[in-house]
């Protein structure tokens, strides 16, 4: 999948501004950004729902506006909606029917998410919100698409279903298919994604491997003293003192700062927590970013 100079304006507002990136086959890529960053609008342009104001989306070499190009696409919206008085199975049949009728992975995906045959015989009206979310995941994956686009798929999933869902994503990627995952659950992104695309105000801020981002992110340092220090060491950013413990952040790769901290008088212990994707997110979008 390739996005080239993709732009979308709604009146005076530019929701997506000159976005370009491509996804390699078999990769799982996280699509991150704060609310209003333009993620969903971008995904809708990939799905052919919204016409770009300029630029283009190509799916395996063909424009996403061409219906046949979407044959390879499995799409799950942020707020999936079904025909409420049809059963889960009838809704899945409808989605499969629109994609040619075959649903080779339906049983496997449904079983992985603990959606039983009995559940699927119920009208969707009777489904809990979590079951509807699972149904949408099955709908997006059942026809074995080469490209899977998921917008906030973990919403409303319980921890067990969430774990199963992460396993499904790994299984999809292992079979050589490509996944673009928009999510605010950073632990999930960290667990399953190879790379992330960071968006802000409609623009791509950065595209990088998860490990690379973590490597360059600031990390949390905890210092424990013999007696309460009067203030946090100046080398710590956003430093706070709580009793004998001072906490703060230091930039990545600054061994000199660590040495300086280690030499603090009265220090009993120094702990450095490896940077998580959440740290990266806070660095990128937090106050002062």
């Amino acid at each position: 999948m390739e996005l080239s100079a993709l732009t979308k304006t709604f009146g005076q507002t530019t929701a997506v501004d000159d976005v370009s990136f491509s996804l390699a086959p078999g990769s799982v890529t996280g699509f991150l950004g704060p609310n209003g960053a333009g993620k969903t609008t971008t995904l809708r342009m990939i799905g052919g729902l919204i016409r770009p104001s300029s630029g283009r989306v190509r799916l395996f070499g063909r424009s996403a506006r061409v219906p046949a190009a979407r044959r390879v696409l499995g799409y799950m919206p942020a707020d999936p909606t079904f025909v409420l008085n049809l059963t889960g199975l009838q809704n899945l049949d409808l989605l499969a029917g629109l994609r040619g009728g075959a649903a080779p992975d339906r049983d496997e995906v449904a079983a992985a998410l603990s959606l039983t045959e009995r559940d699927l015989q119920l009208p969707v009206r009777a489904f809990s919100s979590g079951m509807r979310q699972k149904l949408a995941i099955v709908g997006a994956l059942q026809h074995r698409p080469d490209l899977v686009v998921l917008d906030e798929p973990a919403n409303r999933l319980d921890p067990l279903a969430h774990r199963a869902f992460c396993g499904l994503l790994r299984w999809v990627a292992a079979s050589g298919r490509t996944v673009l995952l928009s999510s605010h659950v950073l632990g999930e992104v960290e667990e399953v994604c190879d790379a992330v695309i960071l968006m802000r105000a409609g623009r791509v801020l950065r595209v990088a491997a998860v490990d690379e981002l973590r490597h360059h992110a600031s990390r949390e340092v905890t210092l424990t003293y013999e007696a309460p220090p009067p203030w946090a060491p100046a080398a710590l950013s956003a430093g706070q003192v709580e009793g004998c413990v001072a906490r703060g952040r230091i930039p990545a790769g600054r061994l000199d700062v660590l040495r300086e901290l280690a030499a603090e008088p009265g220090l009993l212990d120094l702990t450095v927590v490896p940077a998580s994707l959440e740290d990266v997110f806070l660095d990128m979008y937090g106050e002062g970013a």
Binding site: G48, R70, P77, G100
Partner: peptide, 10 residues
């Protein structure tokens, strides 16, 4: 929102 389920089909 059902359009997102239908019109992303080929």
């Amino acid at each position: 929102g059902r359009a997102e389920m239908l019109y992303t089909a080929p």
